[in-house]
Nucleic acid binder design. Structure first.
Lengths: 244, 244
DNA sequence: ACCTGAACACCGTTCAAGT
DNA sequence: ACCTGAACACCGTTCAAGT
């Protein structure tokens, strides 16, 4: 999913005049992700994606089974992006807390890099029913569980941690991505200063009074504190498990 | 959004032979929600929804602005369903912990009643950018914040609680809904016992060993304990705020 | 007043035909 | 070997016409 020379040419100046750049699945997936990033999922069409790649839509079907499968590949690409992150470790080398902290921040970086595509990680059905977004690849879960077991987690605690950790990530990152993605409906183009739906605010005095505060962005602090809270609870659970 | 006589007639025996049941927005929205509940969002089409109501698709446009708007109305219907729940209180009458606990369980009931429609609550853009799913209506947030303030929460703590509470609900309920919704892709019809994607499991020994455990459903306990943990942290935060 | 029929622009996808 | 053109079935949506 790395930008190769072919993409560089296309990105630089439209499609190459005569030099035929061959289509590949990776190029298609990368283009689809880029498309969603700046036009939203609703705008992604096989025909428009073809345009973007200088090709008829029908040419895509030689490299990708169809639109649905393409979206799954986009999810795979984002999941793979987390694994490439040098700050995310394959196994715990400085204790499990450091391991989980790096992982959490790595996932968060990807979510904020692709706020409009990230929800796909949640909405696409996973490979197996017990895989949970956003850590929804077998490789991820294997690395996650093995890492914890190396650090002395027993079976039950490892699995419970996987579940608690994914729940935590999903809640925070989906909301944070929504803030940044700002899926502005095509109707909400408030180019003029009309401030829609503000009128009704008079009926909600408390909301109205706290409006400024509600708009403040404390997501970094909240993520950090919530993560620390989770790690703290896990530490307790670990000691309890050891005491049994 | 309550089933009225008109729906009862239709539900009982197909469309009424001659007695014209007038279309209303409520009937359309209820039918759309029911459709998503048992066919998934992808299957919902204006034309098919018209069929289900014994009407041409074009007739729907007299009562609903369009498909996108209809989906927003479906979300509103689910949000309203939470407010009708008799176990969910409008204001805290037995302390804020009881207030939040009832609210949490009420939202959970709706999520589990509509596992395939619930994700819409997250994916549709809210009325205002500072409204957060799943408590994404002005009425909800007004009741929520006012209730907490009656219980002595200051402004900052009320808003922080709103944010923490929504994050908690979203993470848990989206994952739990996904478990129950089982968005089985049209291709995944494993009517024969082929067990797809199980072959690769040999490369993931830890996942393989913990497979049984990963499939166990502990969502009730997790929801309960996580909620209790949240309330506990809030209690601490309250005391800290009071000490300042 | 409320619904229908026909039409338009746009989809995903298939397949024979081009180069 | 790889892409294109034409075609099919299905969408959302508009609007004049029916009752």
């Amino acid at each position: 999913m790395v930008l190769d020379d072919a993409d560089a040419v296309v990105a630089a100046g439209g499609e190459p005049p005569s030099a035929r750049v061959p289509l590949t699945q990776d190029r298609i997936v990368a283009a689809a992700l880029a498309f969603i990033d700046d036009a939203g999922l609703a705008g992604l069409t096989m025909r428009r994606l073809g345009d973007r790649l200088g090709v008829e839509a029908m040419a895509l079907y030689r490299h990708v089974p169809g639109r649905e499968a393409l979206l799954d590949l986009v999810v795979d690409a984002m999941v793979a992006e987390m694994r490439q992150d040098p700050d995310v470790l394959d196994e715990p080398t400085n204790g499990w807390q450091d391991f989980l902290q790096r992982l959490a921040h790595g996932v968060r970086r990807v979510a904020l890099k692709h706020p409009r595509a990230f929800p796909l990680v949640t909405s696409r059905p996973p490979e197996a029913p017990w895989l949970r977004p956003p850590l929804r690849s077998l490789e991820w879960v294997e690395a996650f569980l093995t890492g914890l077991q190396e650090e002395g987690f027993d079976d039950a605690t490892s699995v419970a941690t996987y579940r608690a950790f994914t729940t935590f990530l999903l809640g925070h990152l989906l909301l944070e991505a929504a803030d940044h993605g700002a899926e502005i409906g095509p109707l909400d183009t408030l180019e003029d200063g009309e401030e829609p739906s503000r009128g009704g605010l008079q009926d909600y005095p408390t909301v109205r009074r706290l409006r400024e505060r509600l708009s403040e962005d404390h997501s970094v602090v909240e993520f950090e504190e919530s993560l620390e809270g989770l790690l703290g609870r896990l530490t307790l659970a670990l000691h309890e498990a050891a005491a049994d």
